[in-house]
Every structure is written in structure tokens, then in C-alpha cells.
Amino acid sequence: MTSQIPVKAQNAPTDRAAEVLGGPVSDTSLRRYLEGIPGVDAVGLEARAASLGTRSIKTTSKARALDTIISLIDLTTLEGADTPGKVRSLVAKALTPDAADPTCPRVAAVCVYGDMVASAVDALGASHGLDTAPGGINVAAVATAFPSGRASRSVKLADTAEAVAAGADEIDMVIDRGAFLSGRYGEVFDEIVAVKEACRRPDGRYAHLKVILETGELNTYDNVRRASWLSILAGGDFIKTSTGKVAPAATLPVTLSMLEVVRDWYRLTGERIGVKPAGGIRTSKDAIKYLVTVAETTGVEWLQPHLFRFGASSLLNDVLLQRQKLSTGHYSAPDYVTID
């Protein structure tokens, strides 16, 4: 994994994976490759994560960190009780996180269920699109029978295609953890490739694909590392820790191990893959630990919305309270932010 493998720009994921694997993609070649990856030193990983979490970020650095966090948030609502009205208010919050402070940055994206994409796109109006509109926001949709992923391939692909057709810029898919844990790596690989293809828009561009590993169900750091490699090999643009529906969700050591894979992949191919910890990150203090971990593992160039995201709903309010504390000089209160 140390030599640089040249990657052609338009390589299909399967061709590129074959190049990395040194042969055609199959269950056998994937197993040989993934299970040949050195194991994770769990104690060392946790100690490293804990030590990265002890940095003291204060005053101006903290102000900068808080604004960075907001600009990296995928503001999320994934409830059975979601309505178009709920999505509209989520979008309003995404566009104007702190109504009392016009200098407050916007979040990176709103993350909703597939059937709510049209409502989100509609509510965003001219501000839709992180890259296309000034101050724009992306719409991310969870797809592929989120959160369990227990549906037939055709249902998952239809789910994805519908969300993309409705205007989703990003698709958050879940891997089939059952297949992964049974060692059917080829099946997981094929599914990611197929979903990636379903992300193709009529104009030939692709919606960004985030692959959710659901690390809470993978049990070991070794599995997290293998699933990360597998997802990247199969063409995922982002690897994401969790759905937020399973505990434990994102933890710092798990995110660190995924960042290490991303760093190794960058060294191997020169391609930058994004990372999205999701679920369980509720305080600014926690989020700042993630920023430190990213900066120390993959480098500060990863601290931008195209390469790092927080999947969160309640985190934004805590960051806003901290921002208000910095600007007013006294502690703020939940009465001064919205109830989501």
C-alpha cells in the first residue's frame, strides 16, 4: 500500500478497485485484500483519540472553530413524524442559524428522508446548491432502505434514483451490514457500485455518495477499517460512521480509524475522500475534538464541507449558544435558540 498507483480520472470504480486489488473484483480478491490489511491496535487508537481530545481551544481559535463547525454541519431531521412543514423550518434554520447574528455562517447541507427532498429543494429556492449558489446549501437524502438497509437491491436503487430525481445533491446510503459481517464483500461492493450509478443525473454528473458503515453494528475497529476500504474502493465519495439510529453512533476512535484510511487512500491514489461522523455529537466541545482529530490525521485541508461533515441535529444549537457566549460575554440559554 505504499507505492503510488496512478488512477485515471474517469476510471470506473470497478476498474480502479481491480487495479488496487491486483486482479478482478470478486469475493475472493476482496477478502484477500481486506483481511490482509493489518489489524487495528485498539488500545493505541483509543489512547490516540483520547489525547487528541485534550487540546485546549480557546478565545479566537474557539470562535473560528465554532464557525467552522457550523459550516460543516449536515442539519438533519430523520424522524417518522417528519412533515413538509418540519423540513421547511429545518431549511429556515439552515439558512439563518442565528437570527440575531447575521455574521453566523450557514450549514453545509440539510439531510432528510428521500420523500422530503422536494420540500427541502422547494424551501431552499435560490439558495439550493453548495457549489452552484452563493451561500447555497446542499440537500442530502438518506436512501437504500435507511436505516436498516434491509430491502431488495431494486427497491434500494429506486429509492436512490427517486431522491436524485427530486433534486438531492448528496445520497447517504447504508451498506448491507449482514452481508459484510458474513464476509460477502463482493455483494456489498456491487451494491455500492450500483447505488453510485443510480446517483447519476441526466446531465451525466453524479450526486455525491456517502456510504454509511453503521460502525455500531460492525463490532470491531478491524471491521470498521475493512468497511472503510471497501466503501472507498467501490466509489463512495464520503464514508459516514452511523445512521444515528443505532447506539453507539459516532465515536472519536472510530472516526479516527476512518480518517486514517482516508489518509492512506490519499497517499495511495491522490484522491480525497470525505468523512462524516454522525449521531451522538451534541456539544461544541465534542465537535472541536473532531476538528482537532481531522487536522492532525488528514490535514486542515479536510476541514471544508466537501471533505468533512457532522451529521447532527442538536449540535447546531449548542454551537450557537457557545457563539452567543463569545459575543455577549455571558452564558446563553436554550431560550435563545429554536426548539427543533
Binding site: G329, H330, Y331, S332, A333, P334, D335, Y336
Partner: peptide
């Protein structure tokens, strides 16, 4: 001073 100014 921190408690009397605390918004909560």
C-alpha cells in the same frame, strides 16, 4: 457575576 448574567 457569571450567575447573575447567565441567560438560563
Amino acid at each position: 457575576p457569571w450567575l447573575v448574567a447567565h441567560a438560563d
